[in-house]
Design a protein around this nucleic acid. Structure first.
Length: 488
RNA sequence: GGAGAGGUGGCCGAGUGGCCGAAGGCAACGGUUUGCUAAACCGUCGUAGGGGCUAAAACCCCUACCGAGGGUUCAAAUCCCUCCCUCUCCGCCA
């Protein structure tokens, strides 16, 4: 298996709107994902100027120039390397060409039909008969119907496949197979040494009486947690503290969105169609529980046209998050690390393309501020191509040190999606320059932070030999001045 | 859950079968006027796909789009059906 991350991604300034402003309610637009339009993928491909413009009309996605698409299918496939391993490229290419052909035929016939109809109108007005034209047009109308039926099928098939193509990694993303190839960027804080071996957070919490997993299992099942007393209050304190910092110090606007969303919303941010098995879906409805606030908050501006001077837009949201955790059997079965329901404060940003990587650094820094103020040691790693999520172009994971496990664990994940989500969700902006075309915004988000895992880190770092746990100073105002958790 | 009203361009809002990509207004942009601002006046002004011409644009031609999907018709924003969404009233409810 060969990994070919895009090695030299020279930017070419090209922007192009590509969709109508309507977005079918249950039929998300076709997006060949990828930020290709903004990058020249430097591969040995002829004429690959990296433009890749699917088109969508109210009928759905429609195809264009086959040679063009073929170039791009190839360019994307090469650039994705192993990330594109399970994408059916041949089928995409074949369907693309078919769509191109059918579109051309349909357009030609519609042109004739239009002219014929005008002719009928003209003759009627002149008081002439038009029966011959009417007969001919009737025939053409039937042929159009046939072709459009085939076209519709082709488009649906193509769209279904194209929505499964992941985003392209940014040029600064290190190549690699899996998490072991992630690149550490920086560390902060000192890893503490404990006189006796530090207890895991669930032992600490259960001894304090603030965590109860037996009851959670009774009322819900495995991978749920019950917080009690000061534990519940600490969770609430963390949420409030994080929101306060992000709104008053970092300039984010607080939102509190629905945690149940529809299929189109899930498709806009990239959870669907590929990852349905990771989501909780409501019975009898095309509704899903959100796995992260990224989903509703990024979709705030779906199908909207923003103005450049509105950007950047920065939102923060506290929501519960729900994940099936399918395929994680046996991992992190104890404690608060991996639950079906957990709390998270999320940061979401919309920017112009030229600012998004600056924004990624900024946003990551905002998440780090929380850890620093809690005095929790952490490191930042850049995910390698093999570990990168489906929709992301670049991701920094922030990992907090967990004393009981003796290693760093993810507590935040901050990503730039470039235009990938904006394309799927049709979020555009009008550049300030006169005569400027509409462009897709860039979207970003990051946890700031995962509340449950922050609780884990606090319990473990602030545990005392007598079984109590000190409350970090910045949280004390949120705890009624309380300085220490003691057995309840 | 019951009854009703409505979804048209960035926004508001006309438009009941052909000359409608769609009047008018607002906003925006360019200009004239102006001490500055404002006002007035003139002009431009939807999006996407394909093709032509280009070094690339501009520009020209074709096609699609009036909530979504389907139907009737030579021809649909306009007529019919289904669905989605919004609003109002009634009932129920945190």
């Amino acid at each position: 298996m060969v990994f070919r991350p895009p090695t030299s991604c020279q930017r070419i300034s090209r922007h192009s709107g590509q969709r109508t402003s309507q977005c079918p309610a249950t039929d998300p637009p076709l997006h060949f994902c990828a930020t290709l339009e903004k990058r020249s993928v430097s591969l040995t491909l002829p004429g690959s100027d990296a433009r890749f413009h699917p088109r969508s009309t109210a009928r759905g996605a429609v195809m264009h120039d086959p040679k063009y698409l073929r170039d791009h299918v190839e360019a994307i496939r090469m650039a994705l390397g192993a990330r594109g391993h399970d994408v059916p490229w041949d089928a995409i290419r074949k369907l693309s060409e078919e769509r191109r052909m059918l579109t051309a035929q349909a357009e030609q016939l519609r042109h004739e039909l239009k002219k014929g109809s005008d002719d009928v109108a003209r003759r009627r007005r002149a008081g002439e008969l038009a029966d011959d034209v009417i007969a001919a047009m009737k025939h053409i109308g039937d042929r159009i119907k046939e072709i459009e039926d085939r076209l519709r099928e082709t488009e649906e098939a193509l769209k279904g496949l194209a929505l499964r193509i992941p985003n392209l990694p940014h040029e600064t993303v290190p190549p690699g197979l899996d998490a072991s190839h992630n690149l550490e960027v920086r560390r902060w804080g000192t890893i503490p040494s404990f006189a006796i071996s530090p207890k895991p957070h669930w032992e600490i919490g259960e001894a304090l009486g603030i965590l109860n997993f037996d009851r959670a299992a009774k009322i819900a099942g495995a991978r749920f947690a019950l917080l009690q007393g000061t534990g519940a209050r600490l969770e609430r304190a963390l949420i409030n503290y994080m929101l306060d910092v992000h709104t008053s110090q970092h300039g984010y606007r607080e939102v509190f969105p629905p945690v149940i969303v529809n299929r189109q919303t899930m498709t806009g941010t990239g959870q669907l169609p590929k990852f349905e098995e990771d989501l909780f879906r409501l019975r009898d409805e095309d509704w899903f529980l959100i796995p992260t606030a990224e989903v509703p908050v990024t979709n705030l501006h779906r199908d909207e046209i923003l103005t450049e001077n509105q950007l950047p837009l920065r939102y923060t949201a506290y929501t519960p998050c729900f994940r099936r955790e399918a395929g994680s059997y046996g991992k992190d079965t104890r404690g608060l690390i991996r639950l079906h329901q957990f709390n998270k404060v999320e940061l979401v940003a919309f920017t112009t393309p030229d600012q998004s990587y600056q924004e990624l650094e900024r946003l990551t820094g905002h998440a780090e501020v929380i850890l620093r103020s809690l005095n929790l040691p952490y490191r930042v790693v850049t995910l390698c191509t093999g570990d990168l999520g489906f929709s992301a172009a670049k991701t920094y994971d922030i990992e907090v040190w967990l004393p009981s496990q003796g290693h760093y664990r993810e507590i935040s994940s901050c990503s730039n999606f470039e235009a990938f989500q904006a394309r799927r969700a049709n979020i555009r902006y009008r550049p300030g320059k006169k005569d400027a075309k509409l462009e897709f915004v860039h979207t970003l988000n990051g946890s700031g932070l995962a509340v449950g895992r922050t609780m884990v880190a606090i319990l473990e770092h602030y545990q005392q030999p007598d079984g109590s746990v000190l409350i970090p100073e910045v949280l004390r105002p949120y705890m009624g001045g309380m300085e220490r958790l003691t057995p309840e």
